[in-house]
Amino acid sequence: MTNLVRTPFSEISLAEPFFDSLKTDYAEFPTWFKKKADSGESAYLYKTKTKGLVGFLYVKAEAGMVTDIKPPLKAGVHLKIGTMKIDAHGTKLGERFIKKVFDHAFEVHADDAYVTVFAKHQGLIDLYTRYGFEPYAVKDGPNGQEMVLLKSFHNVKNDILLDYPRIKANGVTIGLLAIYPEYHSKFLPDSILKNEHFSILDDVSHANSIHKIYVSGIAAAGKLTRGDLLVMYRTSDGKGPALYRSVATSIGVVEEVRRIKSFATLSEFLKYAGPYSIFPKEKLTELYDTKKHHNMIKFTYNIALRRRLIRQRLIEEVGLAAGTRRWDFFKLTRAQFDLIFELGQAHESYLVD
């Protein structure tokens, strides 16, 4: 297992050392765990070949008021993050879990998401607040008082990260950006195609992180600015006609664009690009030495389209030009973007405007 996989509690061993800290923090954890197993509930697991179980996420939709916190949450649909634990090992797995929380929230049409956390877990608190959770309440329990962090999906902060994963499409440039198949799913793991296996995914920063860096030699792509949108387009793998093998899969938001030559030293460049680019250190070093005018497009990975759109549909239904240009990077109209959003069956909750 090398991806987030939804797994029944009854198939998860509580004897795993991974759960020891949860048993220490919550004396009732084994009882709670058994209750979830007996009721047939599931959680998201992340395992690696070398470290075994390194991530666990349980979320639950709650309808009505939430009254066991002070102040209570008013009536609505709330996604409770019942348990999220990650054994940090430098691969930004926490960001992968945060994205999964939001994806799940939109699936159940939640008004907000909330989590309780002890103040001692500052790293976890920092992760939540980076993506829009705010202190809202406290919860008193048998193990002490916990903070309650809340993220509303109705309030707009006009900030790419605080509003993440929601996007704004008004008044921004929208571009279609091509990515080769050998990079696509390892870079955008939630956009993996049905004919690909999870075994191609690795537990590495560029896969797990919400933030991505794409290296481009296309001059027009260098004109993108913060807040612009990208529709990621996986080019053909050559195993059949491009009309059916090339697909639009994902939507991201540009954070910034920098020329490689803007970095004064190689070490500065590697520190910036290393965690978020699919290229290894050797390739990045080569780019720094030989491609000074290439652009580094840093963007957030917001939406994996539920239905991937093949090139034929993009031409016939969205109205993209069939053969007048290379499909490497070009601008989309708002109407074309809206069709991609609709035909790709993206949840309307992702769109702010």
Rank of each mutant, 00 (worst) to 15 (best):
F118G: 02
P72A: 08
D202Q: 12
M147R: 14
N195G: 01
E268D: 14
L53I: 09
E134N: 00
E62V: 11
S152N: 12
R313K: 12
A346M: 10
V138Y: 07
T2H: 05
T324Y: 11
E134I: 00
S262L: 01
D111W: 00
R6G: 04
V148G: 05
G171Q: 05
P275I: 11
H184F: 15
A322Q: 15
N302I: 10
P181N: 12
Y214N: 08
E342M: 11
K281I: 10
D159E: 14
I278F: 14
L162E: 14
I278N: 01
I160S: 08
Y131P: 00
Q336C: 03
T129P: 06
A321G: 13
P135M: 09
F330K: 02
R96V: 04
T265R: 01
F19T: 06
E316A: 08
F106D: 04
V231L: 06
K35D: 15
G90I: 06
G55Q: 05
Q312D: 10
K283Y: 08
T67C: 09
Q145T: 15
V101L: 07
K261L: 04
Y128D: 08
Y272R: 06
H197G: 05
D111A: 04
I98C: 00
Q145N: 09
T235C: 08
Q345W: 00
N295G: 03
Y46D: 00
L229V: 00
K331D: 13
I213D: 10
T129Y: 09
K100W: 09
H109F: 11
L57W: 02
K85S: 06
L124E: 07
L14E: 05
D202E: 14
I86T: 09
I278V: 11
T173H: 13
T24W: 03
R245V: 02
K23S: 11
H121V: 07
T48G: 05
Y131W: 12
